[in-house]
């Protein structure tokens, strides 16, 4: 149905009639249906408060950390597992799905330890392996050049934009299958933003990426598919080129042309 001229489209995951309630009462997501294509970039756009972060956090079961939050519906993976299933361990989900948060949140540890932490959680103790993977992740996050001589410095001494790239490196170090990016460049200057966007382009050969962004240009530049959300509902999902040139819904057209939101 999508006329992507690349190779055949495979589904990595499929959101199926997903409802989400904060604290049992706030109905933040309403009957969301959305495919997530394997090794493609899916952008999620929509006005502030429409539920982008909430949807993103369903993919790694972040909502399970707080009592009272409730999911209804499923997120099926290509292996036929329901990520939201009661028998599925959220920790296992998070081992495969990495996340970069809206605000940089480094640990008050060294730069090295920040990036290495995900590997340590997975039981990696070999110093050489850790060093190699940390370097690779920092290279990928376009931070290596700036920090290679100060890996033992505290992460909090980095600038806001550097901290965000550190968080990206931290999420990449564990080679996730799905990478969730919640406005990863909102704190970055144009050069760092460009390097992150380039990184996203490189990464999608290996990783399925979901990215929340407030920048229409960014969505247009980096994504293959775009989901437009409004007030907790999925208004429109389509190939990015379609969403930006021939949206099916008036609301989408208004939003992407900057007339509201």
């Amino acid at each position: 149905m999508y006329n992507q001229n690349q190779t055949e489209l495979l589904k990595k995951a499929e959101v199926d009639k997903l409802d989400f309630f904060y604290d049992g009462t706030v109905h933040a997501l309403k009957k969301i249906n959305m495919p997530v294509f394997d090794r493609k970039v899916t952008a999620m756009i929509g006005p502030s408060g429409c539920g982008k972060t909430t949807l993103l956090r369903c993919f790694n079961r972040m909502h399970d950390l707080y009592p009272g939050n409730r999911y209804e519906g499923d997120i099926w993976t290509d292996q036929g597992i329901n990520l939201l299933g009661r028998k599925v361990d959220p920790i296992e989900v998070r081992m495969r799905v990495s996340m970069v948060f809206q605000k940089p949140n480094p640990f008050p540890k060294s730069i090295f330890e920040n990036v290495a932490y995900g590997l340590r959680v997975r039981g990696e103790k070999n110093r050489a392996v850790l060093e190699q993977k940390v370097e690779e992740a920092l290279q990928n996050a376009a931070l290596w050049k700036e920090v290679k001589d100060r890996l033992n410095d505290l992460a909090s001494n980095l600038s806001g934009g550097q901290q965000q790239r550190l968080c990206i490196a931290r999420a990449l170090a564990t080679t996730p299958e799905i990478l969730l990016l919640d406005e990863p460049t909102s704190a970055l200057d144009p050069i760092a933003t460009a390097s992150i966007e380039e990184l996203i382009g490189d990464l999608k050969e290996r990783v399925t990426i979901l990215i929340v962004t407030h920048s229409m240009q960014q969505a247009a530049r980096v994504s293959d598919f775009t989901a437009f959300m409004y007030m907790g509902e999925m208004v429109e999902f389509n190939e990015t080129s379609q969403i930006f040139t021939q949206p099916a819904q008036q609301q989408t057209a208004d939003y992407v042309s900057g007339r509201f939101g």
Binding site: N60, M62, L65, I91, E92, R94, M95, S98, M99, F101, K103, N105, P106, F107, P108, Y117, G118, R120, V121, R122, C167, R170, A171, T174
Partner: peptide, 23 residues
Amino acid sequence: IPGNVREAAYALGATKWQVIWDH
């Protein structure tokens, strides 16, 4: 301890005990 630092650790797949002990 800010909630988002805690979340960062959980998001990497840490168990509750790992979060407590390491963070």
